[in-house]
Design a protein around this nucleic acid. Structure first.
Length: 105
DNA sequence: CACCTGACATAAT
DNA sequence: AATTATGCCAGGT
């Protein structure tokens, strides 16, 4: 477990139920300019019970991957978890903007 | 050390 | 709205 990964997981644990944040937002919060690096850290989530990685989505609300895969079935699972949290989606399957959250600056 | 690959983001076509 | 080009950077090889 690298130091970078710890920072990512710690940040993601703070995302409140019923909201989603973008990879870029997580990156910015932990002081990194690469959203891709965040995705790489979440690619293999070691503790799904304590790190709700399904609450992390693309900047436009799209679901780009889950459980190490971007397959439709994985994304559907991710969508179900978010829905279960009360998050709503638009017609094109993206998280509605009013459910996108971010750390207060 | 030098590539290479992405669960990304943004600007320019 | 959709596609392309660039920048990004941690991890693995």
């Amino acid at each position: 477990m690298t130091d970078f990964q710890k920072r990512v997981y710690e940040a993601v644990r703070c995302i409140p139920r019923g909201f989603a944040v973008s990879y870029g937002e997580v990156a910015r919060f932990i002081g990194c300019r690469s959203a891709r690096a965040v995705g790489a850290a979440l690619r293999r989530n070691p503790t799904p019970e304590t790190v709700p990685c399904y609450r992390v989505v693309a900047a436009d609300g799209a679901l780009t991957g889950f459980f190490g895969s971007s397959a439709a079935a994985s994304l559907a699972r991710k969508r179900r978890l978010l829905k279960n949290d009360g998050v709503a989606f638009d017609a094109s399957g993206r998280v509605r903007k009013e459910f996108l959250w971010q750390w207060t600056r």
